[in-house]
């Protein structure tokens, strides 16, 4: 009779396959993602899932910062822009191959973000939120006024499609695979990061920085590291965005996007990878569901009322999750799962 799952050894804490079933689950998810979905989904759903995937990459990145290191960023859209423009310009002007351009773009986004991190992370408190808000506005200004970088008022940078063997990013299937391959790599990286010394150091700094400093874990260093990794992943989501749309322009990476990333991890679940994915899916698809389902149950709203209602619902959802279930959707899922697993002796 199972009454719960208890870790008796430290190795169990950091095991990837916490239970024997976990391995089967992971393989099943991978099989569905990479084989079943591309074969059966309609082009429309591939497009929607691709958008979910791009959002999930950004949200997973942000979750490293917020969930594990306990800092807030309101500038992740700006770092995504830095990534997108770096890779786009490297490919279009310097003829760099994409496998050089993409990692360079991620590093560029990370390094750029450190300017703001260095200014604010030395101080205790949530000053990073304010500094990154500044980053958001500064980047938007640079994109629209320094035309020698962006190459014209529209700041348009065309992303040459990636065509490697059967992977062709001009088709919905190709875009979908590109994004989900990237997402799988990001998830694997973050999962492993959290099992490493660095990941645990971040959590220690978040929970009790004085104790962490006492154990020779430098709070500044690990906060900066988390911020760097998080922004680099945001940069990757910008690159993916560019390949998905085929180009980027100055008006894409707005503050609203940064706030949406935050909403995703809050609704999905702070400090959990499945939470980031669930949140990204929820926030991306909620407008679509509302649009399709409300008329089906006889509620006809004008387009603008629907949008405003959504904006409000985002806020309400975040507040409700903060108050009732701070672990988000993933927390809810776990509660339900545990209830049934331990039934009839649930408590």
């Amino acid at each position: 009779m199972e009454t719960g799952r208890f870790h008796e050894k430290y190795a169990e804490e950091i095991a990837v396959y916490g239970t024997p079933y976990r391995r089967i689950w992971i393989l099943a998810v991978l099989a569905v993602t990479f084989v079943v979905v591309p074969l059966v989904a309609s082009p429309y759903w591939l497009v929607v899932l691709t958008l979910v995937g791009i959002a999930a990459v950004g949200a997973t990145g942000l979750n490293v910062l917020v969930g594990y290191a306990g800092q807030i960023s309101l500038g992740h859209a700006a770092f995504a822009a830095v990534g997108a423009y770096t890779s786009g310009l490297l490919v279009s002007r310097a003829d760099a191959p994409f496998w050089v351009a993409i990692p360079t773009a991620m590093v560029a986004a990370g390094v750029f973000s450190l300017i703001f991190g260095l200014a604010s992370l030395r101080v205790k408190g949530l000053y990073l939120a304010i500094a990154t808000l500044a980053a958001q506005y500064i980047v938007q200004w640079i994109l629209s006024s320094w035309t020698w970088i962006t190459g014209g008022f529209q700041g348009i940078v065309i992303f040459e499609p990636i065509q490697v063997g059967p992977l062709d990013t001009t088709t919905p299937t190709g875009k979908y695979l590109m994004v989900f391959i990237a997402l799988a790599l990001v998830v694997m990286f973050v999962e492993n990061l959290m099992r490493s010394r660095s990941g645990r150091a971040m959590i220690a700094v978040r929970d009790q920085d004085i104790a962490a400093a006492g154990s020779a874990v430098s709070p500044l260093r690990y906060k900066l590291l988390a911020f760097f990794i998080s922004s680099a992943i945001a940069g990757l989501s910008g690159v993916l965005y560019g390949y998905n749309a085929g180009l980027v322009s100055t008006e894409v990476f707005t503050l609203a996007l940064s706030v949406q990333y935050l909403a995703m991890i809050l609704v999905g679940g702070l400090g959990s990878i499945p939470g980031s994915l669930l949140g990204a899916a929820f926030i991306t698809m909620l407008p679509i569901w509302l649009r399709d389902l409300l008329p089906a149950v006889g509620i006809e709203l004008s387009a603008s009322v629907e949008v405003h209602l959504l904006t409000m619902l985002f806020g309400v959802a975040i507040l409700l999750f903060l108050v009732l279930e701070p672990r988000g959707l993933y927390g809810l899922f776990r509660n339900v799962k545990d209830y049934f697993r331990m039934w009839p002796f649930s408590y």
Partner: peptide, 18 residues
């Protein structure tokens, strides 16, 4: 393994864009 399968799937699935 999954990636390999995926590429295989696209190759077979063919072009269902447009």
């Amino acid at each position: 393994l999954a990636l390999g399968l995926a590429l295989f799937a696209t190759a077979c699935g063919g072009d269902d864009g447009g």
